[in-house]
Design a protein around this nucleic acid. Structure first.
Lengths: 224, 224
DNA sequence: CTTTTTAGTCAACACCTGTTCACAAATATT
DNA sequence: AATATTTGTGAACAGGTGTTGACTAAAAAG
């Protein structure tokens, strides 16, 4: 009683409230509205904390949002690193990368859900931050692709465009995957297959980009 | 004073309030938060109407949202029709279609902004409705592509995939274009060029899909 | 152990929210 | 011209909102 007045008492938690607030916000975003329509009180209530406690950790909601964004990006970059160091033979490369990616999506559903909803629905600074991160993602992918045996002849510019095509496709598929039920394994597998198909198509298209005899694409392109 | 108390008096408007409410909501979405975080009072205030007047036209905000969605889709389908009946030679086809599309985006900025933000940030029913419309868009595009001379050999399934790739790309570029300043013509032109480049790449990739000697892509694909 | 700093509670505020109801003006119908 | 219907008004409600300030328990620092 004196040490732990369980129900109403003040639990120490040792700075764990901050994380509780972040988790609460993520939860609410995942199963309710986008972050921008969450209220401070709503978040604190779910975190099991009185409203005013919020200010001990964040100046306002938008600060929470940016922190959440940061946390999500950390996850994303970690995944990127994991994908890159796999170094599979080019045959299994695409499939392997996509598999790790989608596994990450499954295991960090709330993070991806959060980013997904903020990409176009969030505040200006949020959108900007996310798009910056995506651009970075594209650049890294373009660099990786440059080492592909059958892409060595492609210009850096074309690689960049190709990478953004791939990322666009994966982003779109990710968002569709997030719409699926959490344990719809069949649907998720189907998405993986489709993603691989699409990526392969792009790779194949670019690989042939300048190796054809008539080069219709590049010719038409430079005609602007 | 007795007939027309100008400032405070009751203007007839003849059912024009409904449209005023819709326009107000679009305006707010365009320059502020996503639709889901708009308040009824906010909308009525901007429409120059007392809050209770809202209920004369819509049962609640979500009904307004669905109506807005409907209006936006009408715009989109009209554009689709316009693009399809142009019937340009395949050389200029891609460019022409993209030009009409992006012109529509410019001329209906608020509608596209609305749809863009609701695609992932909106309510479940909204997201569902939008994605349904996009799928429809993809199917129509796939049918159009089937008549392309150099795509006649491609299977319907592959065409569908290819079309969704194109639409994904265009959607992504549209969203990026909406981030641009309204009168940044240079940036918008650049987007058009990039879009054409991407679409051409996809077309080219698929056209070569099964015409190569070793067919690496299709072989790898069917190996699932 | 004593002091200081951190991290939580509680009460209160001014404001904004959706929605109701009774009323009146503008328009449509007869 | 008289009546009925639609459409906008104004006051009022119960409740949610962000933020303040003074207070106190718990943890860290001395």
């Amino acid at each position: 009683m004196s040490r732990e007045t369980a129900a109403r008492g003040r639990r120490p938690k040792r700075g764990r409230t901050r994380q509780a607030l972040m988790d609460a916000a993520l939860d609410l975003v995942a199963k309710k509205a986008p972050f921008s329509s969450l209220s401070l009180r709503e978040v604190t209530k779910r975190a099991g904390v009185v409203p005013t406690a919020f200010y001990r950790h964040f100046p306002d909601m938008s600060a929470l949002g940016l922190t959440l964004l940061d946390e999500s990006f950390r996850t994303l970059r970690q995944m990127m690193r994991e994908v890159r160091q796999h170094e599979l033979p080019s045959e299994r490369m695409i499939r392997g990368s996509l598999e790790t990616f989608f596994t990450y999506v499954r295991n960090n559903r709330t993070h991806f859900l959060f980013v997904s909803k903020e990409l176009y629905g969030g505040s200006a600074t949020m959108r900007q931050a996310i798009r910056r991160e995506i651009r970075l993602f594209v650049s890294e992918l373009a660099m990786d692709m440059a080492r592909f045996p059958f892409l060595t002849q492609v210009s850096a510019e074309d690689l960049q465009m190709m990478a953004s095509l791939v990322v666009n496709g994966v982003v779109a598929l990710t968002q569709e995957m997030l719409e699926l039920d959490e344990d719809d394994e069949a649907g998720q597998h189907e998405m993986l297959i489709l993603a691989e198909k699409q990526v392969r198509l792009i790779y194949f298209g670019v690989a042939q980009w300048r190796s054809g005899s008539d080069q219709p694409a590049s010719a038409a392109m430079s005609a602007e």
